[in-house]
Simulated assay, not measured.
Amino acid sequence: MFGSLKNGANAYAQVGMETGVVAASPHHLIVMLFDGAIIALQTAKRQMQEANIPAKGKSISKAIAIIDGGLRASLDKNAGGEIADNLDSLYEYMSKQLLMANLKNDPAILEEVTKLLADLKGAWCAIDDQAETFEEPAVPVTRNAYDPLAPNISTLVKA
């Protein structure tokens, strides 16, 4: 009749993640993609050790989707020049390695790609830290006509 407690917790976590995505800067969204791919690979490694082949395949596929559909797709090769081209090649390499890891059931390949992602994430976070040091003070955000997260003042009860 009612959803299980686990389903409720998962729904709550999903709302938290979606709220984080909406509120995140473009730079932080990339960090979230790195985190998602790393978590998927850590999960895949555990599933590989448990011989849970279907789940391992799903986790590796999720990591590949994040790398190709998120990180690689977000590259601006016109603005990024050689760096974007090099990252594109690295992301392509990672995806191919993950396919091989899945086929060969090789946790060492998962570890290699996880380390590459962690190194890139670290560099990406360092860039953000430097950018924050040199940024101008933020301009106050103006409210849109409709903000679903803002309280509706007209419906508040006065004490």
Rank of each mutant, 00 (worst) to 15 (best):
residue 1 M to F: 08
residue 2 F to P: 05
residue 2 F to I: 12
residue 4 S to C: 07
residue 4 S to F: 06
residue 4 S to V: 08
residue 5 L to Q: 13
residue 5 L to S: 13
residue 7 N to I: 07
residue 9 A to N: 10
residue 11 A to L: 12
residue 12 Y to P: 00
residue 14 Q to M: 13
residue 17 M to P: 00
residue 19 T to A: 13
residue 22 V to S: 12
residue 24 A to I: 13
residue 25 S to I: 09
residue 29 L to C: 05
residue 30 I to L: 06
residue 32 M to H: 10
residue 33 L to I: 08
residue 34 F to L: 08
residue 36 G to R: 03
residue 37 A to R: 02
residue 39 I to M: 10
residue 41 L to W: 02
residue 42 Q to G: 12
residue 43 T to V: 11
residue 44 A to Q: 07
residue 44 A to W: 00
residue 45 K to Q: 13
residue 45 K to I: 02
residue 48 M to T: 09
residue 48 M to A: 08
residue 50 E to T: 07
residue 50 E to K: 13
residue 51 A to C: 11
residue 57 G to D: 07
residue 59 S to P: 02
residue 59 S to R: 00
residue 61 S to N: 14
residue 64 I to Y: 01
residue 65 A to C: 09
residue 67 I to C: 07
residue 71 L to H: 02
residue 74 S to I: 10
residue 75 L to S: 04
residue 77 K to Q: 11
residue 78 N to K: 14
residue 79 A to H: 07
residue 83 I to W: 06
residue 84 A to W: 04
residue 87 L to Q: 09
residue 87 L to H: 05
residue 88 D to Y: 15
residue 89 S to P: 01
residue 91 Y to T: 01
residue 92 E to A: 14
residue 93 Y to V: 06
residue 95 S to N: 08
residue 96 K to A: 07
residue 98 L to Q: 00
residue 99 L to N: 05
residue 102 N to T: 06
residue 103 L to A: 14
residue 104 K to S: 09
residue 104 K to Y: 10
residue 105 N to S: 15
residue 105 N to Y: 02
residue 105 N to T: 13
residue 106 D to I: 07
residue 108 A to Q: 09
residue 109 I to D: 00
residue 110 L to V: 05
residue 111 E to I: 04
residue 113 V to D: 00
residue 114 T to H: 03
residue 116 L to G: 02
residue 120 L to G: 07
residue 120 L to E: 02
residue 122 G to K: 06
residue 124 W to H: 08
residue 124 W to Y: 10
residue 124 W to L: 05
residue 125 C to D: 02
residue 126 A to Y: 03
residue 127 I to C: 07
residue 128 D to Q: 09
residue 130 Q to R: 15
residue 131 A to W: 05
residue 131 A to K: 12
residue 134 F to R: 06
residue 136 E to I: 04
residue 139 V to M: 11
residue 140 P to L: 06
residue 140 P to F: 00
residue 141 V to C: 04
residue 142 T to H: 11
residue 142 T to R: 08
residue 143 R to I: 06
residue 143 R to T: 09
residue 145 A to T: 13
residue 146 Y to Q: 13
residue 147 D to P: 00
residue 150 A to V: 12
residue 152 N to A: 12
residue 152 N to C: 02
residue 153 I to A: 14
residue 155 T to N: 06
residue 157 V to W: 04
residue 158 K to F: 08
residue 158 K to G: 05
residue 159 A to T: 09
